[in-house]
Structure formats: structure tokens, C-alpha cells
Nucleic acid binder design. Structure first.
Length: 581
RNA sequence: GCGCCUGUAGCUCAACUGGAUAGAGCACCGGCCUUCUAAGCCGGGGGUUAGAGGUUCGAGUCCUCUCAGGCGCGCCA
């Protein structure tokens, strides 16, 4: 409907332009917005105020000229000039009523658009290190990313989701050694388990798994391993331990433990995401970049283009040439490449896989990292404007008023799985996307648990359940229902509550598109709350199952359409729509 | 110290990305069930948008400074 108004306004402006007014504005730049106050009509535009400035004329007079030259149409009842020069559009009742037919005709396609032009899009999110189960902080990224994918799909983008698996590097080695130590414990070895190794109980589970599968295959005793007396720092001790462990076990055995750890934890992560309702199209392994030499190729490419220099025995990338505050190391003095190096190769692959729009969803603690990634893509000749890095602020965790410290290493964290078990998938998903992603989120577990019945998600689901219930009652009471197909049969829907509900239903496509292109799924959550409110109000004010066939059919058709929009909206957010509660 | 994010009702947050009288939910007060689910509806109180300047027809939104909180500034990932 906005598009139609834009066209009408543009036609009016064309008439004026041939007259005396200078109109330097594109049709799509004419801004039309839903009014906040119903007394201002349904839509409003500030076009007259913008053009009055350029033409140095009175905005209200210009507004009047524009509205007089608007082509006649049956869906606009009348226009008004208001305030400093707004043009307000009041729609005819037919315009509102026709929404119902549109919703039912389009079915699940209501709210979809082609704005994305089928552009191939990659959304990478979560990508937590496979060193432990997902915790509550990851949940926010998961819920947000999944909603972004759904919204972009509905807006006409060709979307694929991806999880980048950091299955290489020091953290994985620490995980491997932690597991091996627990394994040794199972054979009665007394271990002084290092503080900075992974403490979680899931490590012990993997150790048991190893023992079951491989029996005593990985046992060796070398007193140096359990000698804790050196005066190295704790990090150095851990690295020494890793080296010793690798040497004693040998590449093959060490590799088996490494792989077992990785697979067990990936399985945990996948299961947790599954019960959270989040699935990925692709899991991209960091290690694969190393094995198939993509990483080396990438570094050579940069070297050939003189983006790399050597200093202090390390290879540095000139990221400062492209906006970063300093240059960054790609290959360390000891010959090992950095995480950043493989990340360049990874992002290069995203461009090579022909994605036109690349979205990364990162925790806000990575914001210092965006400059160097952008710099690396520019250096490789890829436009960094095609790479959109969205930062999600941290979820600070509270139990009542007590702030909990979260650390994967120490094993002190609430897992996503625990959260889903405690508050339910629907409430958790909704809770996470309720607030803007750049807002800090205080996630109070006590509150989420104790108030789960007050959670707004139930309010919305309840509206859907009530609609289903009405149709159940209809059958029980032997009422008939014939879905209305003709606009004239909907003319009985002219009560203020009905018009309000129709008006909200009409906004749905705009809400979806706006939420998608601005990456703000919370807009949809707020919209659904309003829509549910409109329905509940209507429900309390009017009876649907009435004896008058014409009225009953019209009202049931309206609430049928309402239920479908609520269900579709919740689906985008990963929330279910129960038929009874 | 430098950079990024944030500061809106007692609490948790919105405000269609510069629009009209800043809105919801909790909490508080008062009404509504012999009628399709009261997990609901209706009404009420509650604000110097952290503070001070600036930009313009118009600022919670943009610019500058100050204050407060969070995060980041590795040859970690």
C-alpha cells in the first residue's frame, strides 16, 4: 500500500514539476510512514516540508497543491494537511477490509517481498569454539542469527547459514590434554589438574568414552608430566604439558584423542542448537583450510602483493594501510600461523563462494577485530562493503541480584541446554531477541524462570490459541463457517476494534521488511505484541459466534487471517504457535 | 590513556532510523467473567530522555564537551 501511495504522490509531483515547483526526488525516496496517532490518519508523508525548503515556499501551501493533484483512487477516503506541512492519508474502510482477502489469498507468502532480489547471502553466527557446550552468551547470537536468516529469506534473499568451527590451534590442544589427564585419572593416576585446563564435567564424560573405546591404549607414565614443581608460569606449564603429551603419545594417538574431543563436543553443540530450534546449512572447518593449503595460498597471495613484511622473525600483515590501528601478525616467530591468518582465508572463501552479501554475527568483544578483517578483504581485492559485521552485545548473567562470572575454562557457566530446560525454547528464543542487539542484556535466570508465565511470548501465543479455540467451539456449537472471498461481504467489519486490527494486519509486510533490512528482529517481536493486543481487545468487545451468518462469517474470516499472521510472525522468531494452552 | 557500545517512568525496554502530545510490559490503584480460554480486557497515577552547549521548520535520535556503566586494545582464539 505504501508503494501505491508513493506512485500517487510521484504522479502528483510530476504535474507540479511541469508547473513551477522543482522536484528533485526519486520515487522511492518519498518517505511514507504509518502514523503514530490515528487522528492523523493511516499514513503520513513529510514530502512537502522537504520540497518547500528547496523551493523556498510555504510547506503547508505546497502540501495542499500536492494533495489536490493526487489522482483519484478508491482506497483513499480523504487527505488532510496537518502540523507544519504533513499530508495525512485517511483510508476508506474497503481498503482496510481488503487486507483480509490479501492475507488469505497469499497464505504463507503474506509478508514476503522481493526486496532482496534473490541475492546470495551467507550468514555466519554462533561459531563458538568447540571446547565445551554452548552457554547463555552464545544463545543470544544463535537466536539473533536464526531470526535474521528467516527475515532475510522472507524478504527475498537467498540465504545460507554457516557455523565456523575453530577445530585447530592452542585451545583445542588444551582441550585434548585436559581430556587425557581425566583419562589418566580413570586409571588411578593421581593428577594435579591444572587450574587453566578445562574443568567442566563434560571432559570427564569424554575421558570415559575414550576408556570405553580404546581401553588403556593412551596410558604412559613419564614423571615429568606430573611434575608441577618448575617455576614456569601456569600458561607455560600448560604448553609444556601439551608438548610432552604430543611427544609421548605420538601424532596418531594424540590425533585420535583430539578428534574424539572435537566430535563429542560438536555433537553436544549440534544437539543443543537443535533443541533450541537453530540449524545450520553448513559447518565450515578451520582445519580444512590448513589441510587443503588454502591458508598457505592465501598468505602467498598477500606476500606477492606486498601486503606482508617480516619483523622480529614474524610475518606481519599491513592492516594499518586499510584503516586498522596497527599491523597484525599472521605467522608467529615459531612458525605457527595465527587465528587471524586462517580467518582471512576463511573470509576469502566466502567471497570465492560467490556470496554477494556476507553477514557475520559476532560477540561485541570482537569489535576490535572488524578493522583488520575489513583491511584483509580490501587487500585481497574484495569490497569490504559486501561484508556486514553485526555485533551482539554481551548477555550478562544474573541469578537474582548476583552477577555470575562466566568462564568456559573454569566450567562455571549456565549452559544453553539448562536454560532451554528451565524456561523453555519459546520463552528463551523470544527473550533473546526482545531487545536490540546492541543493547546490553541482563539475563536474570531467576526472573526468566519465576516469571515465565508473564513472559510476553505467552501473551502472543495465547491470542493464537484463543483463535483456534473459537473454531473448536464453532464446531461444538454446530455453527457453520464459509470463508469470505468477496470484499463486499466484509463490509460488516467496520467497528473501531475491527478497523484497528485490520490496520495492524496491513503493517505486517512493512514490519518484516524493515526488521530484515535493519537487522532488528525485535521490531517483529514488538509488532506481534501489538497485534495480539488488538486481537484480545477485539475478543473482549465482540462475540464471534453469533447467529447472523453474514456477521459470523466475516468475523471468523478476520480472526482466521489474524491467527495466520501471528503464527507466521512467531515462526520467523523460532517460536511455536500452540493451538491450545 | 585510546577506540566501540550504552544511559529514556520505581524496574526491564520501545520509539518506524530527523517528525506531530516520548510509548509498552512488569509493579501500584480502580473497574469487567450465567457469553467463544480472566495466561484476557478497560481506566488511572507516574518523565527536565544522565548533564551542558550547538545544528534546523522540528532533536530521545545528528555534532562537541562532561559524567556514569560495559567491552576491547596479544606473536590468544
Amino acid at each position: 500500500m505504501k508503494k501505491q501511495l508513493q506512485t500517487l504522490l510521484y504522479q502528483s509531483l510530476e504535474v507540479l514539476e511541469s508547473d513551477e515547483v522543482e522536484v528533485s526526488i526519486e520515487k522511492n525516496d518519498i518517505k511514507i510512514e504509518h502514523t503514530r496517532d490515528p487522528s492523523h490518519g493511516e499514513f503520513a508523508t513529510n514530502i512537502a516540508m522537504l520540497l518547500a525548503k528547496k523551493n523556498k515556499c510555504n510547506p503547508r501551501e505546497l502540501a495542499k497543491k500536492i494533495s489536490i493533484n493526487l489522482p483519484k483512487t478508491d482506497f483513499i477516503e480523504h487527505t488532510e494537511i496537518a502540523g507544519p506541512g504533513f499530508i495525512n492519508f485517511f483510508l476508506s474502510k474497503n481498503a482496510y477490509q481488503s487486507i483480509v482477502l490479501e492475507i488469505l489469498e497469499k497464505g504463507k507468502k503474506y509478508g514476503t517481498s522481493k526486496a532482496g532480489k534473490n541475492k546470495s547471502t551467507l550468514v555466519e553466527f554462533v561459531s563458538a569454539n568447540p571446547t565445551g557446550p554452548l552457554h547463555i552468551g552464545h544463545g543470544r547470537g544463535a537466536a539473533y542469527g536464526a531470526a535474521i536468516c528467516n527475515l532475510l529469506k522472507k524478504t527475498g534473499y537467498d540465504v545460507r547459514s554457516e557455523y565456523y568451527v575453530n577445530d585447530s590451534g592452542r585451545q583445542m590442544n588444551i582441550l585434548t590434554v585436559s581430556t587425557w589427564l581425566r583419562y589418566m585419572e580413570l586409571f588411578g593416576e593421581k593428577i594435579n589438574f591444572p587450574d587453566n585446563a578445562y574443568q567442566g564435567n563434560y571432559i570427564k564424560d569424554i575421558a570415559s568414552e575414550l576408556k570405553e573405546k580404546y581401553s588403556d591404549k593412551f596410558i604412559f607414565s613419564n614423571n615429568k608430566i606430573f611434575d608441577n614443581s618448575s617455576n614456569q608460569s601456569s600458561d607455560e606449564k600448560l604448553d609444556t604439558l601439551i608438548d610432552l603429551c604430543m611427544n609421548e603419545l605420538g601424532e596418531e594417538k594424540y590425533g585420535v584423542i583430539h578428534k574424539t574431543c572435537l566430535n563429542s563436543i560438536l555433537l553436544i553443540i549440534k544437539n543443543d542448537l537443535c533443541s533450541f530450534g537453530v540449524e545450520f546449512d553448513n559447518w565450515y572447518s578451520e582445519n580444512s583450510l590448513i589441510e587443503n593449503m588454502e591458508l598457505n595460498k592465501c598468505i602467498s597471495t598477500l606476500e606477492n602483493k606486498s601486503w606482508i613484511y617480516e619483523k622480529d622473525g614474524a610475518k606481519w600483515f599491513r592492516s594499518s594501510k586499510h584503516g586498522d590501528v596497527k599491523d597484525r601478525v599472521l605467522v608467529r616467530e615459531n612458525g605457527q600461523s595465527t587465528y587471524f591468518a586462517s580467518d582471512i582465508a576463511y573470509h576469502k572463501s566466502k567471497f570465492e563462494r560467490q556470496y554477494k552479501k556476507i553477514i557475520n554475527i559476532w560477540g561485541a568483544d570482537h569489535h576490535g577485530y572488524t578493522d583488520r578483517i575489513n583491511a584483509s578483504m580490501e587487500a585481497l581485492g574484495y569490497p569490504s562493503k559486501n561484508l556486514e559485521i553485526l555485533l551482539v552485545q554481551f548477555a550478562a548473567l544474573f541469578r537474582g541480584k548476583k552477577k555470575l562470572q562466566m568462564s568456559t575454562r573454569s566450567g562455571e557457566f549456565i549452559t544453553l541446554k539448562e536454560l532451554v530446560t528451565e524456561v523453555g525454547k519459546d520463552a528463551a528464543r523470544f527473550f533473546y531477541i526482545m531487545r536490540k542487539s546492541e543493547q546490553h542484556l541482563d539475563f536474570d535466570i531467576e526472573l526468566a524462570k519465576s516469571e515465565s508465565n508473564d513472559n510476553p511470548v505467552y501473551y502472543i501465543q495465547y491470542a493464537h490459541a484463543r483463535i483456534c479455540s473459537v473454531f473448536r467451539q464453532m464446531k461444538e456449537k454446530n455453527y457453520s463457517f464459509i470463508q469470505i472471498k468477496k470484499l463486499s461481504d466484509l463490509s460488516v467489519l467496520d467497528d473501531t476494534h475491527e478497523i484497528k486490527l485490520l490496520s495492524s494486519l496491513a503493517k505486517y509486510p512493512d514490519v518484516i521488511e524493515n526488521a530484515a533490512i535493519s537487522y532488528e528482529p525485535h521490531q517483529l517481536a514488538y509488532y506481534l505484541r501489538e497485534l495480539a493486543n488488538d486481537f484480545h481487545t477485539y475478543y473482549n468487545a465482540n462475540q464471534f459466534l453469533v447467529d447472523n451468518d453474514a456477521i459470523r462469517n466475516a468475523r471468523l474470516t478476520l480472526i482466521d487471517a489474524t491467527g495466520k499472521v501471528i503464527k507466521d510472525g512467531l515462526l520467523q522468531l523460532g517460536v511455536s504457535s500452540p493451538e491450545e494452552m
